[in-house]
Amino acid sequence: GAMMAPDSLIKHPLQNRWALWFFKNDRNKEWTANLKLITAFDTVEDFWALYNHVQKASKLPSGCDYSLFKDGVQPMWEDERNKDGGRWLINLNKNQRMTDLDNFWLETLLCLIGESFEEYSEDICGAVVNIRNKGDKLSLWTKEAGRPDAILKIGRKLKERLSIPAKIQIGFQSHRDTMTKTGSTAKDRFRV
């Protein structure tokens, strides 16, 4: 038979195993009942098989979320590896759903599975995209809100990879602040 180059035979292993979650807002159900684990993967090829198969974020009904987290970490503040952490939050305006959302989400996924945050990749827990009528949100979750150098490096790298211009700032909020916030949003601990 034809000789296949070995590179195309083996699947390329990822540093981490990742799980994709889906949340659909069904008000007459418990919050956690609306959160579903789709599947987990640990190779490049299995990532693409999943990504190419599921609905694009921009096509999800309002109220839905996708979350990609390291396997074993649940996409919620309460999880052991999230509770001391926080998130870089990117608020999208309404027209960005058609222009940027899918690109931003895919680029974020490539950063996660490719371990693009170098020595700070271990601080990464996962990422979430929230589809909302009032404006979609993309966030990158880290496990420790008290590590400024890791958080700032991760935030700058995220902006660079998403080609977000310098003049547009993004903020980092600790989950604890978000949980106990009085106003509409928690105050930013960091901005880049």
């Binding site: 390329h12 540093q15 490049v44 693409w48 490539l110 599975i113 490719g114 371990e115 693009s116």
Partner: peptide, 18 residues
């Protein structure tokens, strides 16, 4: 220990491999 990194170019190239 050794770390497995992939840059976006490589990952995108793998998108449509069989």
């Amino acid at each position: 220990g050794t770390k497995i990194f992939y840059d976006r170019h490589f990952l995108l190239k793998c998108r449509n491999s069989p």
